[in-house]
Design a protein around this nucleic acid. Structure first.
Lengths: 326, 326
DNA sequence: CAAAAAAGTCAAAGCGCTTTGGGGGCGATT
DNA sequence: AATCGCCCCCAAAGCGCTTTGACTTTTTTG
């Protein structure tokens, strides 16, 4: 059944028919044992121990990756793990031989997992990058820095001078890059970044709400926000409206939109709710998976990488800065 | 290493030490082949083909289940699958022997998967139930009917007479039960359910927004809403406020809260944003997983089931009906 | 002190597949 | 007619583990 050339077409057909008749499918374990390949990819999803938080982008990323795997006949192996145990899990996966490769999620700055995986020789692709990691490795990331610098520039062009940054946790690489983009765009216009306008926290609705409220209640409140997640942005909007202000009129907001399936910023009909830097995380999952599969197929080629650009899409949450705030 | 009684303690220690020294872990495939047990549980997550939607509760459910699996030494196998292909996948999983059991997600009314799994003899636990399925099977569900009937009763007690129901897709069993709870509570007070106040749709922010807007723009708009998901509720709130109304003052709202980790309705400090029927889906994942593991351990016991009650928690989104609306 | 019992060790078989090398059958070549 | 070559088919070995039963060593007991 495995396409050997010396088997006649007739026999092959007979075997196939019999297999279907008996509802036969080769036993994965036996096959894996004989071939030495697991035909499975591992995803390790870390639970932030502090708040037991599951990153909401995982679901969509995995949906995209899963598509690529089933097309290629691979299975997906998931380990849910408290972030402290994460390294041990990679060793386990490798030495128990239950996966042929892994996707590394949510890389930190100087992420130790990259070194570890390189050492144990398990093929991997990082979703994101890890600043400070010098050696070569395969990754797929969006251009977070440029996205946030463009978004900041866009707000500056609209006349905003005090722009709040509501970011994710900045030991995560993506958040660091986003802040870089933000501060460098401010720098370029000769504006000093104000620490009172920058927060770094888990991207939940409540956090977004609380931080925005804090900033808006300052003496010189921001007239615009840059928000790292559509979930936090909901909270930011709540804070804005609770103070009797209007989003897109009194306060502007740009959000990074991962195109989560249950929270589409734009439904294709109306003008999107939020002005956003947009990049589909589902698509990223698909591409990262395909990259990993190709690496597994030809292990000796150089590490691959791909940098995706985020689109800046106009929504109803941005407008010129109000006059009195200039 | 597997705890045979006739091996001396000293030898065991020696073997253990050697295993650790060489970073040895038994090969999962070989072990599985020899024992006939995969030590893995399958989760099949269907993608609604129509909108390519991933149910946002999966992430948290799986986080809970994953905890139970790793405690028991089990792995988790994920298949992401277009909902049309779902039955084939179950057959594959069973005949390829790569899992010892599966969790059935998002059961429909008269769900054919239950019959199928019973036939092929693969142990399973349903997260939810399937009305119309007569035979015995193991399930874990929340009492959707009672939760929604209580919530409706609560709104009626506050004087609301026109209550909008913004539900999930009603071919899903949970949504059906929620509507049942809603209509039966209305019935009990002699109020006819108005079809113009009931919608059934995928639970996205946009859908919630649009449906609430539609209802509020009717001649006799609802004074309260019952919403099946916190995601849709965000959209409902947006609609309310866009019309210049205040949630918890002009319009009341009760939502079902799955305690999604990135969208906590209550953060333990303030009064929750929404009044809600609350039940942790993460916890459900943990319990369903434990139930399945116990079934696999002793396959001959009768099917188990567990019905969890949802708590009604007071938030800031409900208040007595405005006078003029009575 | 010898024999029986207990405790510990080891080697072989088998799980279900892939891979390989040896033959059997048949038509073509000399 | 004997040989060669080709096309198939099949049987055997091995993947890394568990399980079993046979065997050896130590301890207990009459």
């Amino acid at each position: 059944m495995n396409g050997y050339p010396e088997v006649s077409e007739a026999t092959r057909r007979r075997v196939h028919a019999a297999a279907i008749a008996h509802n036969y499918r080769p036993n994965t374990r036996a096959k894996g044992l004989a071939t030495g390949r697991a035909m499975a990819i591992g995803h390790v999803i870390p639970i932030a121990t502090k708040h037991e938080m599951v990153n909401p982008v995982f679901a969509d990323f995995i949906a995209g990756a899963g598509e690529a795997y089933s097309n290629a006949g691979y299975d997906m192996h998931l380990s849910v793990v408290k972030d402290a145990d994460e390294e041990r899990i990679y060793c386990d996966l490798a030495s128990k031989r239950n996966v042929d490769g892994v996707i590394v999620h949510a890389p930190l700055i100087n992420d130790p997992r990259i070194k570890l995986l390189r050492e144990i020789g398990l093929p991997f692709v990082v979703h994101g990058r890890s600043s400070g990691e010098e050696g070569p490795y395969s990754w797929l990331d969006i251009n977070n820095r440029r996205a946030f610098s463009r978004a900041t520039g866009f707000l500056l062009d609209l006349g905003h001078r005090r722009i709040g940054l509501i970011n994710g946790l900045e030991h995560m690489d993506f958040a660091q890059r986003r802040r870089d983009g933000y501060t460098s765009a401010l720098d370029k216009r000769g504006i000093a970044a104000d620490p009172a306008l920058m927060v770094s926290e888990e991207m939940t609705e409540t956090n977004g709400y609380r931080s925005a409220l804090n900033m808006l209640e300052q003496d010189t409140p921001p007239t615009a926000f840059l928000v790292s997640s559509i979930i936090s942005a909901i909270g930011v909007r709540r804070a804005i409206e609770e103070l009797g202000l209007k989003m897109g009129k009194d306060v502007s907001l740009i959000v990074h939109d991962d195109e989560l399936s249950y929270f589409k910023n734009s439904d294709g009909m109306d003008v999107p709710l939020f002005t956003a830097t947009r990049s589909s995380v589902r698509d990223a999952g698909r591409q990262a998976a395909e990259m990993l599969l190709s690496i597994i197929q030809s292990p000796d080629t150089a590490p691959q990488s791909r940098l995706l650009e985020a689109e800046l899409t106009l929504g109803r949450s941005t407008c010129p800065a109000p006059q009195e705030a200039k």
